[in-house]
Simulated scan of single mutants.
Amino acid sequence: MPGSLTASVVNVLLTAVARAGADPRRLVGETRLDVAGVPVPGSRVPAEAVTELWNRAARAVGDPDFGMNLGLSYEPGRFALLDFLFLSSGTLSEAFGSVVRHIDLVTTGGSYEMSTSGDLVTLTRRMPAMDENRHPASAALGWQLTLARAAVGAPVRPVSIGMAMPAPPRHRDLAAAYGTKLIEFGQDANTLTFRRRDLDRPLLGADPALAALLRRTVSRLRHGEGRPWRDRVRSFLAAGLDHDRATLRAAAHSLALSPRRLQQLLHEEGTSWRQELEAERARLAVELLSGTGMPVAAISARLGYADVRAFRRAFRRVHGRTPQEYRSSIA
């Protein structure tokens, strides 16, 4: 499945795995996520690796309806900006429309559409390799219904549901969970169909001012997509450094790239990961030494160095003195 997903999707999935008694870090280690442990917040992860994680997770917890159950137990707000765009909208129709327009905040790949036919409104989510994506597709249906129910504070029942997966031997549980007996399997996409009047229902948390603010935030994020890779790496570094984040691999995952590709892009802009990392460390080291009373050892850890000696050597190379000497000189 081409594209990428935000770390928030992975973290929701791994939280469900842990609650079911399985080991989330072991599952991550068995997949192509290629990171040690849980992806850092704000990063993006290759979608094919997450698809593999979904399927392994379902087997690990022994739940054939893992995706459906996760979606229906979803806690609104876990997808941050996208959820808040939904919940602050005026009506369910506006809320679903905002998700359709901004689904790439959470996942890229496939398509998401909203169409009207007479008195019916249909949401259509197409994903590559739908057979492989049965669990995430079922979770997406549950996520939409859970958000809708939370937003209006009452059951929201679709007229019908279409599912790309083959029909299971029994699907009574699906019908009860999704709130409709009309479920059509073997479709070319997953669909939710509602009556138009049901989508005209006002939302409990409708907040036009907040909704406008969130849309401006999305616009700023969109504008930043064309920034040079050097600036994107600097933004990643400025968001905080520690031992896990101060690596090329962590930065590459945050940008949905391979480490090798990120190095190539930085080289084309006349810099490198090592240059950017050391420049940010040098800047932040001076800031912490002069503006805080943090011990040198704590600053070393904050900057992601393996030990204090490595920090001292790096600082002396840039500033011609040790961190302690620098701090004494400005006291």
Rank of each mutant, 00 (worst) to 15 (best):
L33F: 02
E276R: 10
L241R: 06
D231K: 07
W229G: 04
I183G: 01
V233L: 03
R26I: 12
V106T: 07
R232W: 01
G90M: 15
P39W: 14
F236W: 09
F66W: 09
G162D: 08
W143G: 03
A239G: 14
S328C: 08
V50A: 09
S138C: 10
S111Y: 00
P76R: 08
R260M: 15
S254N: 12
E287I: 10
W143N: 03
L289H: 04
E52R: 10
L81K: 04
P202E: 02
H223F: 14
V286F: 00
V156L: 04
R316L: 10
L284A: 11
V45R: 09
L288P: 01
G240T: 13
L147D: 10
G37E: 12
S328W: 10
T217H: 09
Q187S: 12
T15E: 02
L204H: 06
A331Q: 11
R222Q: 13
A150C: 02
T122G: 07
L147H: 10
R245Q: 04
A20K: 05
L82I: 15
T193W: 15
T292D: 01
S219Y: 13
D104N: 11
Y178W: 04
H253Q: 09
S290L: 09
L210P: 00
E280C: 02
T292M: 01
E276Q: 13
A212S: 14
G142P: 02
M114I: 14
W54E: 05
A58D: 15
S73F: 03
P39L: 15
P158A: 03
D83S: 15
A246Y: 05
A80D: 10
E276T: 08
S43T: 12
G142V: 03
I103C: 00
T146C: 08
G110R: 09
